[in-house]
Design a protein around this nucleic acid. Structure first.
Length: 424
RNA sequence: GGAGAGAUGGCAGAGUGGUCGAAUGCGGCGGUCUUGAAAACCGUUGAUCUUCACGGAUCCGGGGGUUCGAAUCCCUCUCUCUCCGCCA
């Protein structure tokens, strides 16, 4: 969420910049400023009364100790009015404080200046297009047919066990996926990320910290019995490791990576986009997360993009990098790069990674701060994360792009992880 | 699931209803000493809000109550730990 003081000091700027996210913030901002002022006035008043009350209480204590009962009870009689005032102001304060908060969490993050304007994915800016698209000829098969042909993935069995979107991986299909996970984790480690194995279920506070709650709970599976949520991405538990934490400046940047299963309800998805591995309720992903110094976070973003790029390159996939337009960006992001790989049989670009700088938006919610060397006051850090990478669509693209009449060729970098060179 | 114990500053751990934002120890930071380091000694060391500033307010798991005054008493919720049961 945006910092209140920042909104207060830059109302026009906030309204103007959020237009790029196609969000009309004028009413909310106006109301926030109005309430914020009222809140401060009440606080100042309440503080004065409290100060008086504290003084009086001390005096009464003193009088009692000196045995001056008369004067003490006389002083006591003066407190009731103060008490009433304080109580009333405190209640008013709490009410306004909550109102401000409710408004504050409705404001999306401010997009960075280089975010292109636009409303739909068509308006995203292609910043790079690289790698060669394979020439598969006429006999090419989509990955769901390849998966069946080589007995790699059983979608029907998943339906039997759970429902659509929960495939069962088998044999080389399973092995292939595990190879990718290990490859991604190893690469992340080489790039300096500390591996984390987080819980796959989180509480409400964690959901709030990274921005899934309060509004996007429809996206997460909710275990109502215990009021816990299945994670939609490892971003949630890993970023929340740093909730309510004050780091030393020299600890930055913090670099963590985690493999996890991810669970998404994907309510409202339908049609051909959900075919095969294209959109699942449960999928595997390796995530990278960084906590960065505010002055360095865009360097860090570039570094993360370069890391993700190196992965798709090593896998030999044709890819493109998109700078998301304001309308296609998430609520929480300030700048997002999406990676898409070309899945040559379906002839579709599949999103396999999303790398974002959240600036202080999550950190504000998380109360994630750091202290620069020699500085007394802690300041809000920046958080970033990216998929490196999301598995199913990578599997889909690799199966399709690497199919030959002799079988599916395993990318060289994966052979040591798989233990086989061909799927046939 | 049953029984019990507990929740205090970065950590450990005191705390009689007023002088407690909180003893003490460890850790951290600064200094003395040393060629350097260690040890020892001295000092220092929470966060948030508010004010131009001086200052003021709040915070001892969350919420509520009693009281002139609550870390301390009462109610309630949450969480953690221990033992038993079950179990990967």
């Amino acid at each position: 969420m945006l910092n209140l003081r920042f909104i207060q000091d830059n109302p026009e700027l906030v309204i103007e910049k959020l237009k790029k996210k196609n969000f009309d913030a004028s009413a909310i901002v106006k109301e926030i400023i109005n309430l914020y002022q009222k809140k401060n006035e009440i606080q100042v008043k309440a503080d004065q009364f409290k100060s008086e009350m504290n003084k009086l209480s001390k005096e009464i204590g003193q009088l009692f100790r000196e045995g001056k009962q008369e004067e003490a009870s006389q002083a006591k009689s003066r407190t009731s009015e103060l008490k009433d005032n304080i109580k009333q102001l405190d209640e008013e304060f709490a009410k306004i404080d909550d109102e401000v908060f409710q408004l504050q969490v409705q404001l999306p993050n401010i997009p960075a200046d280089i975010v292109p304007a636009g409303k739909t994915p068509e308006d995203n800016e292609i910043v790079k297009n690289a790698g060669e698209q394979p020439d598969l000829g006429e006999a090419k098969l989509p990955h769901w047919e390849l998966a069946e042909k080589y007995d790699l993935i059983d979608f029907e069995l998943g339906v039997k066990l759970t429902g659509a979107g929960f495939p069962v991986y088998k044999g080389k299909g399973s092995r292939f996926q595990r190879a990718l996970i290990n490859f991604f984790l190893d690469e992340a480690q080489k790039a300096g990320y500390l591996e984390i194995q987080p819980p796959l279920v989180v509480n409400e506070d964690s959901g709030f910290g990274t921005g899934q709650l309060p509004d996007k709970e429809g996206q997460m599976y909710h275990v109502t019995e215990d009021n816990l949520y299945l994670i939609p991405t490892a971003e949630v538990p890993v970023t929340n490791l740093y909730r309510d934490v004050i780091l030393e400046g020299k600890q930055l940047p913090v670099k963590n990576t985690a493999y996890s299963a991810c669970f998404r309800r994907e309510a409202g998805s339908y049609g051909k986009d959900v075919r095969g591995l294209n959109r699942l309720h449960q999928f595997d992903k390796v995530e990278v997360v960084q906590v960065a110094h505010p002055e360095k976070s865009y360097e860090v973003l570039d570094e993360m993009v370069a890391h993700v790029e190196s992965l798709v390159q090593k896998l030999g996939l044709p890819y493109r990098i998109l700078r998301l337009c304001g309308g296609d960006m998430s609520f929480t992001a300030a700048l997002t790069y999406d990676f898409e790989v070309f899945s040559a049989a379906q002839e579709k670009w599949l999103e396999v990674s999303s790398v974002s700088n959240f600036e202080s938006f999550q950190a504000n919610r998380l109360k994630l701060r750091f202290r620069d060397e020699g500085q007394k006051k802690p300041q809000i850090a920046h958080t970033l994360n990216g998929s490196a990478l999301a598995l199913p669509r990578i599997v889909a693209a690799l199966l399709e792009n690497n199919q030959t009449p002799e079988g599916i060729k395993v990318p060289e970098v994966l052979v040591p992880y798989c233990g086989f060179e061909w799927i046939r």
